[in-house]
């Protein structure tokens, strides 16, 4: 834990290069963010469609089926958007980051960089951290948007819930600060956590095929647990005021 914290602090200290050479970060936004778009869009759509079906089924028991838009939106913006997007992000981008850095180490690319008097924390780690940390909130927002669209497709287009009620109830129930901003904060925290775990595991991996494989697995397991644990803590503070 101490070594990982030191690693994170070093990454922060060496982040100046990201301001001087933003193209390094943009490249990582592409690798971590753009290449994760398909899984985020498709997953968000299906999660929203399922929420629409399940929500309608439950709400009609109480005669409140027109509130299905609210249910879909709040579920996604507060919880499912940040959490599921972060879990998918850990599996797709986090594992890729760990494998890439672990293999760079195993094939002596990191050592070569050090021999060329280029600090790998600044040149390799910091741009990846900021690239992934920037991508994560955008992916979570996209996941939520796609989910709401999926809920709309099922509830309005298929089941026949009134379109005006669907959107207007959602508009009045979803609060910018309490719901959307808190969701964004969650996705920022999850993105940073996943990325630090992925970078540290890759950098710390034994330079062998087995070492990289185990590090990649640890990234997915550790960051998934971190996401769920942090989600509980953040939810307790944000929505329960603990």
């Amino acid at each position: 834990m101490g070594v990982a914290t030191r690693f994170f602090l070093l990454t922060m200290l060496h982040s100046g290069i990201c301001l001087r050479r933003p193209q390094l970060v943009i490249k990582e936004v592409y690798s971590a963010g753009v290449l994760s778009l398909i899984i985020i869009i498709v997953s968000g759509l299906f999660v929203g469609m399922v929420l629409g079906l399940q929500g309608y089924d439950t709400l009609q028991t109480y005669g409140s089926e027109e509130a299905v838009g609210v249910l879909v939106a709040l579920s996604l913006v507060r919880e499912l958007g940040p959490v599921v997007a972060a879990l998918l992000f850990a599996s797709r981008a986090g594992s890729a980051i760990t494998a890439e850095i672990g293999l760079m180490k195993a094939t002596e690319q990191i050592a070569a960089m050090e021999m060329m008097a280029v600090d790998p924390i600044a040149r390799v780690v910091a741009p990846r951290f900021w690239g992934a940390a920037i991508s994560m909130p955008l992916l979570a927002a996209l996941f939520s948007a796609m989910g709401i669209f999926g809920g709309y497709l099922v509830a309005v287009s298929v089941i026949g819930v009134d379109e005006g009620a669907f959107w207007s109830q959602m508009q009045s129930a979803v609060d910018l600060k309490d719901d959307i901003l808190n969701g964004v904060i969650k996705s920022l925290v999850f993105g940073a956590a996943v990325t630090v775990v992925a970078l540290f595991e890759g950098y710390d991996a034994p330079p062998t095929a087995e070492g990289v494989s185990r590090a990649t697995t640890r990234t997915v397991v550790t960051s998934s647990l971190a996401i769920l644990g942090l989600d509980f803590v953040l939810t307790a503070f944000m929505f329960r005021g603990l």
Binding site: L103, M104, T107, E108, Q109, A111, A112, M115
Partner: peptide
């Protein structure tokens, strides 16, 4: 330094 297998950035 020339590394054993080149260590080119892939």
């Amino acid at each position: 330094m020339l590394f054993q297998f080149g260590a080119l950035f892939t």
